[in-house]
Design a protein around this nucleic acid. Structure first.
Lengths: 145, 145
DNA sequence: CGGCGATGTAACTATTTCAGTTACGACACC
DNA sequence: GGTGTCGTAACTGAAATAGTTACATCGCCG
């Protein structure tokens, strides 16, 4: 389970919500989404909870409860989703502190961090160039849109 | 993301080898490298084994055995290292196949793959722009070079 | 006001991965 | 043949993921 599928699940959730919203249904339940993603509703609610904290969706309570998109599909980029669900950096540094008595051990971490920051910036830039609307179009067309 | 430190360890290994090679010692043992990385020699040998398969280092046997860089430090990019040690994609797709009866479930995976491929290409491009010599300079200077 | 349907979360489990460790055979030089 | 190192298998502990059960909570509706 090297890489996690949180970004995939969250994008799937939002893309599905965008699709059914286009069909006139703008409040949906975690059970309905779970049926499309093919997983447990709790997994979906966990994902929606992160998206809610990021201000991308809202939860409604009481009768007719469920979830609603807070922005248009073309105003949500995959970078927004990435920021909402991904906490860890792309590449981890040493698990244990390297030998500080060695010039490499003492100085390599900031050097690596600079390179890793550049790689993450490149990823964010790529994700920022694709919206949920793009994914929806690509999904229905068989391409990324 | 359960990010691993394989890239970090492998870059550390090569950077250290480049440093000591500059000091005239071009055959080193996994024990010596492990002392700088602050880990077990077997972890280093596993990393070196992947770098050997990638053609970046060679192993010597018999008396005076050890490892040797096969290229100059400025001819090895972090992309070469990334390719050598990283097998999994940056982002995982669904763990279980999504619902094929749903238009999103049926079509989202190729759409996502296209975006993910773009992100990976961006990472590779960034890593390709930095060499072990750059990391060595940055490590000794307190920057990435 | 009580029932209902959904959210929100805690708690537990199975699976997987990572990295550290021990152990030992293989190898090539002396 | 002895020695030092590689090369790798096997095991362990720790952590993360995602799936699951369970249940308190919330707010409308009859």
């Amino acid at each position: 389970m090297a890489a996690n599928s949180r970004l995939t699940v969250a994008v799937h959730v939002l893309t599905w919500m965008a699709l059914v919203k286009g069909r006139g249904r703008d409040v949906v339940t975690s059970d309905q989404i779970a049926d499309s993603v093919n997983t447990n509703p709790v997994v979906i609610r966990r994902s929606l909870g992160e998206l809610r904290k990021a201000g991308l969706v809202e939860a409604l309570h009481g009768a007719g409860a469920g979830w609603r998109l807070l922005h248009e599909a073309d105003a949500i980029t995959l970078l927004d989703v990435y920021r909402a669900v991904e906490t860890e950096p792309l590449f981890a540094l040493h698990r244990a502190e390297p030998n500080q008595k060695c010039p490499i051990g003492a100085g390599i971490r900031p050097a690596l961090e600079e390179v890793y920051d550049g790689a993450e910036a490149a990823v964010r830039s790529t994700l920022g160039g694709t919206s949920i609307a793009d994914v929806l179009r690509g999904t229905l067309a068989g391409r990324a849109g």
